[in-house]
Computed example of a mutant assay.
Amino acid sequence: MMKLLRFIFPLVFIAHIVFGIYWMAVFVGLIWLSFWVYTSKSKLLIKFRRLTYLVYPLVIIGAVFLAIFLRLFVFGIYVIPSSSMERTIFPGDVVWVNKLIYGPQAPKSVYEIPWLGVAYWLIKGKPASIGEAKWENYRFEGFGKPKVNDVMVFNHPYDNDVYIKRCLATPGDTFQIISGKTFVNSKLVADASGVIFYSQTVFNENLIASSLIDSLNLNIYRTKNPLAYDGHLTQRQMDYLTSLPGVVSSSINPMRPDTAFIVFPLHDSFNWNIDDFGPYVLPHKGMTIELTDSAKILYGRVITELENQSLDSSHYTFTNNYFFMMGDNRHDSGDSRYFGPVPENAITGKASFIMYREKSSKSFIGRWFLSFNQ
């Protein structure tokens, strides 16, 4: 086993160098060095390992720094607080977030470093401020790029709260929603299996309604109209119901309370809503636009607040990449339809799978280690 590990570590080290992921090569190199010091039969290293008063503290310190490294650069664990991603992810699900895929970000202040941030705050005492000691934002090279339909964890671009949503458009894409259906570069994006809409289904008679609701286990309920039932359904469920005899229609409910909500870019000249939105071009690094009145409405806040630049010139070139995020619970989600595009430096990582449920029950045992990206 030891010989096999001595063979594997150099291969992994070389692979990271070849693919340009130098920061991981350094990490693997340090692990390789530690492993060699621990297993080497060199007389000098054997004597060193017998100096327990020196070795034990080094092992403890090494373990602490390894834990900090893993937490900062490899993975994150998040508990889902809201229903905005139902039925893909439910409140109480504990989600594993992979930071290696897109590349982890270096901490922007000492307070973002696990444990050390708390220690620094205690040392500083009352004068301590989480806004101080800011460092330049930097993202390390990752193993891949963000894609449409990836589920991502990110910080809200304006209030820094942690969100988890699905990416629906990437930098340079033209994004649009038409009657609840999403389009990227004029191509329909297939909804993930868990995407739900607040719908209304109208039946010919209540007996048929009761029978179908029970047999199909539908999450809908009767409204003031005795033949109309509202509730959350997937597009597939709505299409299937529409094809059945005894069903007059099944579609997105056009009379929901959220139809009165004001959406991005929060201006009267754009009559957009959460079901009919865009077209909107996602800014990418190096993209230059003419600052017309319309462009200032669409991109003004991004330029002034996220890129910290003014709108004084006639043209502007973006310095960051931006993504469009939406919840799978399409009519109960605060997302990019309300606050606009999310900058790349706000993305923490790719949510890969559900580890377990915070409060387990029999109905959720099957959700343990469940992948939910498609």
Rank of each mutant, 00 (worst) to 15 (best):
I14W: 06
I17N: 02
V26M: 13
W32H: 05
V37L: 15
K41C: 07
L44E: 14
L44N: 02
I46L: 10
I46W: 05
K47H: 10
R49E: 04
L58K: 08
I61G: 09
G62N: 13
V64E: 07
I68G: 01
F73A: 09
I80N: 06
T88D: 04
N98T: 12
P107M: 13
P114D: 06
G117L: 09
A119Y: 13
F140C: 09
G142S: 07
D159T: 03
Y163L: 08
G172E: 00
L188E: 14
V189N: 04
D191S: 14
V195Y: 01
L207W: 04
S210K: 15
N219L: 10
N225D: 15
P226N: 14
D230F: 06
S243C: 10
R256N: 09
P257M: 06
I262Y: 02
H267M: 10
D268A: 09
P279E: 12
P279A: 13
E290T: 15
T304I: 02
H315F: 13
Y322V: 03
D328T: 04
N329G: 05
H331M: 09
D332Y: 08
R337T: 06
F339M: 04
E344R: 00
A346T: 07
I347L: 12
E358D: 05
L370D: 05
L370M: 12
